[in-house]
Amino acid sequence: MANKILAILEQREGTIKRSSFEVVNAAANLAQKLGTSAEAVVVGDTISNINDIPKYGIQKITHLKSKDLFNYSSSGYSEAISNFAKESGFNFFMLSNTALGKDLAPHLSVKLDTACLVDCTKFEVKDNDIVYTRPLYAGKALVDVKLLSDKKVITLRPNVFKAEENENAPTAEIDVKEISSVNLKSKVTEYKKSEGKLDVAEADIIVSGGRGIKGPENFHLIEELAEALGAAVGASRAVVDAGWRPHSEQVGQTGKTVSPSLYVACGISGAIQHLAGMSSSKYIVAINKDKDAPIFNVADYGITGDLFEILPALTNEIKKVK
């Protein structure tokens, strides 16, 4: 059966997220390889950057619109999208593996009777079939998988696929469909932003601190470097368990899996559970006074010294070059 691809985009407070543009780009590339077409759908109320979508490769966009869909609702979003997908005959669905994408994908999968593959980091077209790669065991192993159903929902790990812009893109063809009755059996009533600015799961640069930082009163060294780099603050489990930092900042097998462009590990030994969450980062810098710390096995660049001396110097130097 020919694939008809639908990129399902995520908006928060009326703005489509960067990870969704990665999906647009990936869907457009896949469509080209398969000789088929890709469209995009976004669910929400008013959306500010809908006209940016064609820059990433998809021109035809459907906006499923209602005031009641401003906030996420697993029942409302999955019903609206699956009704639209059935009417329009889509059979291949792509989302980003964000909190929303991870929730929505399995709901759609059952509603549309598809195979479901999450957290994909690579796919390749081989003999008209697609082979998907994804990490398991927190990145300690990878699998290549084939999906056996004609209909598929896949989610892409954020920050892995590129969102390449094409400035000479055609204008967007937007079809706005008002959704009159929204299924709000389950609905988000409030969003509580956490104190920290940037979330490790979404950041392009992360500066993480471990037990080597000695106490919560010294974490400002990590925060200052993070600020100079425009980075998010991360933490090892040791410092989260000690109550120095919130669990939302924990990187690792029982925290968040991250793949930023740059990960700076300060006073982190590199336990297997920590490495599992961050070793797919593009570049890793380790600062640790123990030259035998396992973190150096995955680091691209290391300084074997005292972080209390190195961090302030590094923050200063970054401020100079930025």
Binding site: T114, A115, C116, L117, V131, P135, L136, G139, K140, A141, L142, V143, D144, V145, K146, L147, L148, S149, S279, S280, N297, V298, D300
Partner: peptide, 14 residues
């Protein structure tokens, strides 16, 4: 089954 594992392997070492 709706999926089939073709192969499992370790990530390329750094």
């Amino acid at each position: 089954p709706t999926s089939e594992v073709l192969k499992m392997y370790l990530p390329p070492g750094k």
